[in-house]
Each structure stands twice: as C-alpha cells, then as structure tokens.
C-alpha cells in the first residue's frame, strides 16, 4: 500500500505538471507520462490487460495525436508566449495549493463506507468475459471506430481540399 501511495502521488504530480507547464508540447508529453504512471498502478492492481491498453493507446496513440496537432498549429510568436506565460501562471497559481490542501485534509479524515460488497465474480478471464458477455460493447466499439473513420474523412480530408 505504501508503494501504491507513492505512485499515486507521482500520478497527481505528473498531471499537475501536465496542466501547469507553459509549453503545450511539454503538456502533451506530461499527458503521456501520466498515462504511463496510471498503467503502472493498473498493473499493480491486478489489471494487466487494461494496463497494456492504457500504455499502447493512451500513452502511445493519443500522445502522438496531441503532439502532432500541437506541432501542426505552431501557436504563438515569442512575444506572445512570454505574455501568456504570465497570464497562465496567474491563472493556475492557486491549483497546487488547492490540491495539496484537499489531499492532506481528505487523507487525514478517516471515512468508512458502510457498503455491502457484491459476491466475487465467476468469470475471471477477461477475454471470455469480453467476448461472451459484453458483445454489445465490442460491437459498439466497432461502430464508434467507423464513426471515427468518417470523422477523419470529413474533418481532415476536405480541409486539405480547402487549403489548396
């Protein structure tokens, strides 16, 4: 548990850095780092398959997506960056203190939940469970991927036409 807490603290720190860092590019990299730490926690909490997905899709694919869109847009000139830096620091100044305060206060309070936990599951194999009992979700994934494909066609392909 002690190790878990340390990793969780690292997770929160990584996400804080992601949100607060000045350059967008670092922000994208911070997101990947957050995903990696999350994947480690998942692995420790007996969910290795989901951890693999988190690593490959979130830390890999989505970070590539973010980094490419950031480099495609090339946001500001040097002067603007310095201006925005100040603005950002003012806006996000409070966040670390809020997080620290919230965390300390909440961790000190001991809350006990009076819940009746369900009986442990019978099907323990993720693949079987996914293919036998959650077919509708799998099917939904296929549909949403198809929708994503059309989104790419409409949003990206025709954009190129306009630019020309």
């Amino acid at each position: 548990m002690f190790l878990n807490i340390i990793i969780l603290v690292a997770l929160v720190l990584a996400s804080l850095w992601t949100v607060m860092t000045r350059s967008l590019l670092r922000s994208g990299i911070g997101l990947a780092l957050t995903s990696v730490i999350l994947a480690i926690i998942m692995f420790r909490l007996a969910s290795p398959l989901a951890a693999v997905f988190e690593l490959s899709v979130c830390a890999g694919l989505i970070s590539v997506l973010f980094v490419s869109v950031i480099s495609l847009t090339q946001p500001y000139s040097q002067k603007e960056i310095i201006e925005r830096m100040k603005l950002m620091l003012v806006r996000f100044r409070l966040l670390p203190f809020i997080i620290l305060g919230l965390g300390l206060i909440l961790l000190l309070i001991k809350v006990n939940f009076d819940l009746i936990l369900p009986i442990p599951e019978t099907e323990r194999n993720v693949r079987n469970l996914l293919w036998n009992f959650r077919q509708l979700d799998l099917f939904g994934q296929i549909i949403i991927l198809l929708a994503g494909a059309f989104a790419v066609v409409i949003l990206f392909k025709e954009m190129r036409k306009n630019v020309r």
Binding site: S47, A50, F53, E121, E123, R124, V126, Q141
Partner: peptide, 11 residues
Amino acid sequence: HVALTQALVIT
C-alpha cells in the same frame, strides 16, 4: 471484479 472492470476500461 477485475475481469469486468478491465473489460469496461478497454472499451
């Protein structure tokens, strides 16, 4: 219920 939540998380 690790199997169930893993299935959900993958989706």
